[in-house]
Measured scan of single mutants.
Amino acid sequence: MPGGGPEMDDYMETLKDEEDALWENVECNRHMLSRYINPAKLTPYLRQCKVIDEQDEDEVLNAPMLPSKINRAGRLLDILHTKGQRGYVVFLESLEFYYPELYKLVTGKEPTRRFSTIVVEEGHEGLTHFLMNEVIKLQQQMKAKDLQRCELLARLRQLEDEKKQMTLTRVELLTFQERYYKMKEERDSYNDELVKVKDDNYNLAMRYAQLSEEKNMAVMRSRDLQLEIDQLKHRLNKMEEECKLERNQSLKLKNDIENRPKKEQVLELERENEMLKTKNQELQSIIQAGKRSLPDSDKAILDILEHDRKEALEDRQELVNRIYNLQEEARQAEELRDKYLEEKEDLELKCSTLGKDCEMYKHRMNTVMLQLEEVERERDQAFHSRDEAQTQYSQCLIEKDKYRKQIRELEEKNDEMRIEMVRREACIVNLESKLRRLSKDSNNLDQSLPRNLPVTIISQDFGDASPRTNGQEADDSSTSEESPEDSKYFLPYHPPQRRMNLKGIQLQRAKS
């Protein structure tokens, strides 16, 4: 015994090295194993092979420090690593049964499904019991997946119906949107047309105001020219009257000059006056001389005659003075006559000038009245044309509004008919989907599995289990394997941990 101590140590070291070499393959693929292994699927088989106990299973599945599946799978690998070579062998058998691809990844061999460990530990009855539990578990999982698949199909059909409904609603909204954009385009076109009409109206108003201003300026210029013409006519008439007055005065002077006595007659009258003065002096001298030589009687007679002569001279002087006064009065009367005649001529000139001015103003008033009548006639014609244009424009607008209203009513009726057609199509689609759903539900009910399987069917299934373990590994792997896509769409199922009653199965096998 003492001599065998070193050999035992060498043997233990060799086993430990082999164990480390075995687990080295697992550690190399630890990331892939932790990512894809579900500990809840492996722990029943590991407990059946007595590699882990209930406490280890509870620690792996329910520990609060292991929230994710990767953490739980890593903890399970750590626990199996502590179990040595047996933990490695049982772990590979569980991978061979549940995850053939991972088994091939770790060992590089094809899975054979021999279950040597569980046969050694529990015997064939334990293997049968384990396989029966796994089959029931798989059936329950398949039923749950079928239910989930039916629910998802129903949800899918519902979503398809909602999608069709949303599509129809979208078509309806597109119809309304198209109608909205069309009405918006019509409104924009009408606004552009309105702005264009306003611009045209403004341009016409500006043109009309400009023409009116030009016409008023032309009328004012015409009036100024007419006033200048009238003033020139007035000056012409005044000059004609002055010329006529000057002509009359010149004719009067000419007549006075023609009626003036001649120079010879004046000289002859002056000679006669001198001769008479000479004779008068001679007679006076004779009379003076006679007075001195005459007697007293003759002197008395001469005195009487002288007195008579003096009286006659006085009378004559009075007559001469009277004649002079009369001549002066006649001259003054002639001057007054000439003055009055001049005033008369001036008044006649003024009267004729005023008459011509009156005629001029009368003509001017007639011209202004004619212009006013023409302006009123043009204004009435413009008003009439404007009223006709406004009436025609309003009539066109009324007809346009009428046609637009008819078009809008027809478009609304068309839209309502399209919407009604879309709604009826939606109703038809809904009815078809309901009919299809009812038909599929009836087919699913016919094809669904019963909840409680008979014992004979279970025994028959387990009677055929042994050949399947040898020759149909691919079928078992397809039913027991969970793909990543299934984990996305289906909830994980945790079967209840219970042991099955095998009395009925044993009785059935005894009868057979």
Score class of each variant (00 low, 15 high):
26 V>P: 08
26 V>W: 07
134 E>C: 06
48 Q>W: 02
106 V>E: 02
23 W>M: 08
21 A>N: 13
112 T>A: 14
131 L>D: 04
15 L>Y: 14
23 W>P: 06
110 E>P: 07
140 Q>N: 12
114 R>T: 14
7 E>G: 12
87 G>E: 02
23 W>R: 07
38 N>I: 02
88 Y>C: 07
68 S>T: 13
40 A>W: 09
125 E>D: 14
124 H>K: 09
4 G>L: 13
66 L>A: 00
86 R>F: 06
128 T>P: 12
21 A>G: 13
27 E>D: 06
77 L>Y: 02
94 S>M: 03
116 S>G: 14
84 G>V: 03
64 P>N: 05
82 T>V: 09
17 D>K: 12
48 Q>R: 03
34 S>E: 01
20 D>W: 09
49 C>Y: 15
41 K>N: 02
23 W>Q: 08
83 K>A: 08
53 D>S: 04
133 N>F: 02
75 R>A: 04
125 E>Y: 13
78 D>C: 05
78 D>L: 03
118 I>D: 15
76 L>Q: 02
84 G>K: 06
122 E>W: 07
68 S>R: 01
89 V>S: 14
20 D>S: 11
56 D>K: 01
26 V>I: 09
7 E>L: 14
70 I>A: 11
96 E>C: 07
107 T>S: 06
22 L>T: 14
123 G>K: 14
64 P>G: 03
96 E>Y: 06
56 D>Y: 04
25 N>D: 10
118 I>Q: 10
139 Q>H: 13
77 L>N: 01
124 H>C: 15
129 H>W: 15
94 S>Q: 02
141 Q>W: 10
77 L>D: 03
61 L>W: 05
48 Q>S: 14
66 L>C: 01
139 Q>P: 06
69 K>D: 00
125 E>K: 05
118 I>W: 15
76 L>Y: 02
51 V>K: 04
146 D>K: 07
96 E>V: 07
137 K>A: 08
95 L>F: 12
23 W>E: 11
135 V>I: 09
42 L>D: 00
36 Y>K: 07
38 N>T: 07
135 V>A: 05
72 R>N: 01
144 A>M: 11
62 N>D: 04
68 S>F: 05
123 G>P: 15
141 Q>A: 13
42 L>I: 09
115 F>P: 15
96 E>D: 05
13 E>C: 12
111 P>F: 04
22 L>W: 07
34 S>Y: 01
115 F>V: 15
18 E>Y: 11
65 M>P: 00
25 N>I: 09
142 M>T: 13
57 E>W: 03
89 V>W: 07
27 E>F: 03
32 M>K: 10
135 V>R: 14
136 I>D: 07
146 D>Q: 12
137 K>I: 14
26 V>T: 07
108 G>L: 01
72 R>A: 00
121 E>Q: 07
27 E>M: 03
118 I>E: 12
126 G>V: 09
85 Q>R: 08
109 K>E: 06
86 R>C: 15
50 K>R: 11
46 L>F: 13
80 L>V: 08
115 F>C: 08
93 E>K: 11
32 M>Y: 10
67 P>K: 10
139 Q>M: 10
131 L>P: 03
130 F>W: 15
